[in-house]
Design a protein around this nucleic acid. Structure first.
Lengths: 76, 76
DNA sequence: GCGGATTTGTACGTATGTATG
DNA sequence: GCATACATACGTACAAATCCG
């Protein structure tokens, strides 16, 4: 899914991919995103890359993360 | 200098420490901060921890980072 | 209330790429 | 070409918080 050879960093590709799912309503407000482990296995990237992608999404206000619970699509 | 046993994360302690130097004028606008390598050796933390601290400072608008040049105290 | 499983948080290390001087 | 410095990406380990039986 993600392309390691692209000039776009993997973490950005993953963030874009998830942002797209949110914007298209495939992931709805309040709904949990897949866990870091799930994302890392699904897209074959390291957990660190997943975490950076999640940070990008948090900074753009798309998701909210709670320790030991998960990340959720932000309301509104 | 930083305290690994504190409840405050190392990266936050380092960010606070550098922010203090900036706010006290020990580091002035436009002036470069020590390199990641220097900071990691000076405070005996990993480069990853230094990078997270620098990210905190960037997000708070205190510093500006330029790849291959360094991080600088933000103007104003 | 306890213990284990799950999930995110912190911290470390290493390797390689990119840009600057 | 070489050295320096930040960027990306991988890995590991353990801590902290939550959830569930």
């Amino acid at each position: 899914m993600t392309n390691p050879l692209s000039a776009v960093p993997l973490y950005q590709q993953l963030a874009d991919l998830l942002a797209g799912q949110i914007e298209r309503g495939e992931l709805r407000p309040g709904q949990p995103l897949p866990s870091e482990l799930h994302l890392q296995q699904t897209y074959d990237v390291s957990r660190g890359t997943v975490r950076v992608a999640m940070r990008v999404l948090r900074e753009s206000g798309l998701v909210v993360t709670v320790q030991a619970r998960g990340s959720f699509v932000a309301e509104r």
